[in-house]
Design a protein around this nucleic acid. Structure first.
Length: 637
DNA sequence: ATAGGGTTAG
């Protein structure tokens, strides 16, 4: 059907314009072209209608036709059809024309076929500055920043003058290139000399580069100096702060952007939600979400996916599900985001259901999907399901990476089959990583296997000597086995090697304010009330059978003092504070910078029963949902 | 004919 209308067109061209060399209009040449869409010949494109082609001379008509086709291939990224057009161009009058070759080069570059693009470039009899710029931006946009920079130097050596298009691509390349060196700053100087440093495009690239270098003040200076700003320049600055966990700054800029009359796009929203998510600013994130709804901005996957993640990471798994359900179009990342959410919250069954739903919806799971469903299985102790998905993954042709192996070691470890976990590690086709040994070490802590724990710890110390976590776990393994001499040895070794335990802290967000606590916190204005509240709770949970587990105190002091220290762990203080300052019956959210300690875990379980509240604790590893005396992690984490 | 910004895991 397509070729019929094409050949009609070509005959019209031929009849009307006799002076054109015959082979160019031979139907056998034109006909094999597969057109992306029939409409394109009739629709206005490049300002040309098919019948306009009849006016003027034949060369112009054909050039327009090739341009239309190449544009269509570029936009729809159909490089195979582009190659067919290329074959025609190569036989035509235009094969030596700079502009036509630039168009071809651009088609290949935009489609990501950089080798083809390079061939066109190398074979061009003549080049202009657009030729260079097109290939440079191709490299820059497709993850080949070094090639872009090398080509830029050659461009200058060959005497071509870069313009603002060239420079914005080159600066982007410099921001992405490793190692960084100082080529970014040198380029900034170059832009300044050319007078392009204040241009919106070049300037946005420059300020993006500075944020990626971590030089936020320099980024701000570039932003302030821009000759004009648009939504992109705002978004670049917001995204820069968001990436560096500068959530407050990102939010402040977002509000300034609104005040100055710019309309945020899904770029702005996804940066903001991402920042709120990684730093736990739920209330602020909700505010921005509400603003987005009111402004009528459609919920697209890019922003929606971060929103799923934000609600999940803030502890509101049900809100995460709501967003997922409301998304008009879901991509693989949307599914992965919700799968990950279920995994982190220990909702294993839900994750398994969702994974099956995903396959029914004909979305192909990728390695992240499998990682999430495996993590969910391991966090809920679904041993058989975990094995099933591990096998399925391999059958689907996805090669398991180290992190997939971690989940299996974790799964076997949780089930208590430590020997099998060790055998699994020994038989893996990859070299075990620190994370794999850490999973075994953790299993040894939970099942109190001192010998294997020490063995796993040795491997961890060798592979990741700077992580204080494993030292603390090994200490706890020895301490809970009553082996205080060995425990003391671990402490001594920690001291000698200079590994520092990260000071634990916990925080709660109440009415837009974040309250942070460290152990034995004595600075809070409500400290006396908090202390009284904890004493009251402590008495009640003791009645329910709570016995302080002093093996979790790393300070080597006498038993009584250990018990006292334990009662002022940061998560207990934060919990007492939250009980004082939130309405009865509401869910309490606590966040913690390291893994929740075993004693606090047992205490919080009982507190959830005593106060009849749901308590959700986010630690570095996962979420714990405490309710009516139990925890969603099943006491394994 | 050529330019700059955003998502999930670890």
């Amino acid at each position: 059907m397509l070729s019929t209308s094409v050949s009609v067109t070509s005959r019209l061209l031929y009849r009307g314009l006799g002076s054109i060399p015959a082979p160019l209009y031979d139907d056998s040449i034109i006909e094999p072209l597969g057109f992306p869409s029939n409409d394109n010949l009739h629709r206005s494109r490049n300002g040309v209608r098919v019948f306009d082609l009849l006016e003027g001379n034949g060369a112009t008509a054909l050039r327009c036709l090739y341009n239309m086709l190449l544009k269509e291939c570029t936009v729809s990224k159909r490089v195979d059809q582009g190659k067919t057009v290329h074959a025609h161009v190569a036989k035509s009058l235009f094969r030596c024309e700079v502009v036509m070759n630039n168009t071809l080069l651009n088609m290949y570059a935009k489609c990501g076929s950089l080798e083809e693009a390079r061939k066109v470039f190398d074979e061009m009899p003549q080049r202009d500055f657009v030729t260079w710029t097109t290939l440079i931006s191709g490299y820059s946009q497709h993850g080949q920043p070094i090639d872009a920079l090398v080509l830029f130097i050659q461009m200058l050596r060959d005497g071509f003058i870069p313009n603002e298009f060239t420079l914005s691509s080159v600066v982007k390349a410099a921001a992405a290139a490793e190692p960084r060196g100082c080529c970014g700053q040198q380029l900034h100087g170059f832009c300044l000399k050319c007078g392009y440093d204040l241009n919106v495009h070049v300037g946005s690239s420059l300020l993006d580069m500075y944020t990626r270098y971590g030089l936020m003040d320099d980024a701000q200076l570039v932003f302030d100096a821009l000759e004009s700003r648009n939504d992109v320049s705002w978004n670049v600055l917001i995204a820069g702060h968001a990436r560096r966990c500068g959530t407050e700054k990102a939010l402040e800029l977002f509000q300034r952007m609104l005040r100055e009359g710019f309309r945020p796009s899904h770029f702005s929203y996804s940066s903001i939600f991402g920042a709120c998510s990684s730093t736990g600013f739920l209330e602020q994130g909700k505010w921005v979400h509400a603003y987005m709804i009111k402004s009528g901005e459609k919920l697209v996957a890019f922003a929606g996916n971060t929103l799923i993640d934000m609600y999940a990471k803030s502890g509101s798994i049900h809100d995460a599900r709501k967003i997922f359900d409301r998304l008009a179009k879901r991509d693989v990342v949307s599914w992965n985001s919700l799968l990950t959410a279920y995994a982190q919250h220990g909702f294993g069954r839900e994750a398994v259901c969702l994974f099956e739903e995903m396959r029914k919806a004909e979305i192909t799971p990728n390695e992240i999907s499998f990682l999430s469903v495996l993590t969910a299985c391991s966090h809920s102790g679904l041993l058989d399901e975990g094995w099933h998905y591990f096998e399925l993954m391999k059958r689907d042709g996805i090669v398991p990476k180290a992190w997939h192996y971690v989940t299996i070691v974790d799964l076997l470890g949780r089930s208590g089959d430590l020997d099998r976990a060790l055998r699994f590690i020994r038989e893996m086709p990859i070299e075990p990583t620190a994370a794999i040994w850490k999973a075994l070490l953790n299993a040894c802590r939970m099942h109190k296997n001192v010998e294997l724990g020490a063995y796993a710890a040795e491997h961890v110390f060798e592979l990741d000597p700077d992580d204080p976590g494993p030292h603390v776990i090994l200490y706890n393994i020895y301490a809970s086995g009553g082996r205080w001499n060995d425990a003391a040895r671990v402490r001594k070794k920690m001291k000698e090697s200079g590994v520092k335990k990260e000071p634990a802290c916990s925080w709660v967000e109440i009415e837009n304010a974040i309250h942070m606590f460290v152990a034995n916190d004595e600075r809070h204005p409500q400290r006396e009330e908090i202390s009284r509240k904890w004493e009251e709770i402590y008495a009640k949970i003791k009645d329910l059978g709570y016995v302080p587990d002093t093996s979790h105190v790393v300070v080597h002091v006498d038993q009584q003092e250990r018990e006292v220290n334990l009662q002022y762990h940061s998560e207990k203080i934060a919990l007492a504070f939250a009980l004082l300052n939130t309405p009865p019956g509401s869910t309490i959210h606590i966040k913690k910078n390291i893994r929740v300690c075993g004693d606090c875990h047992s205490a919080i379980k009982l507190v959830s029963k005593v106060v009849e509240r749901e308590i959700i604790v986010r630690d570095t590893n996962r979420f714990h949902h405490f309710r009516d005396g139990t925890c969603s992690c099943g006491d394994y984490w």
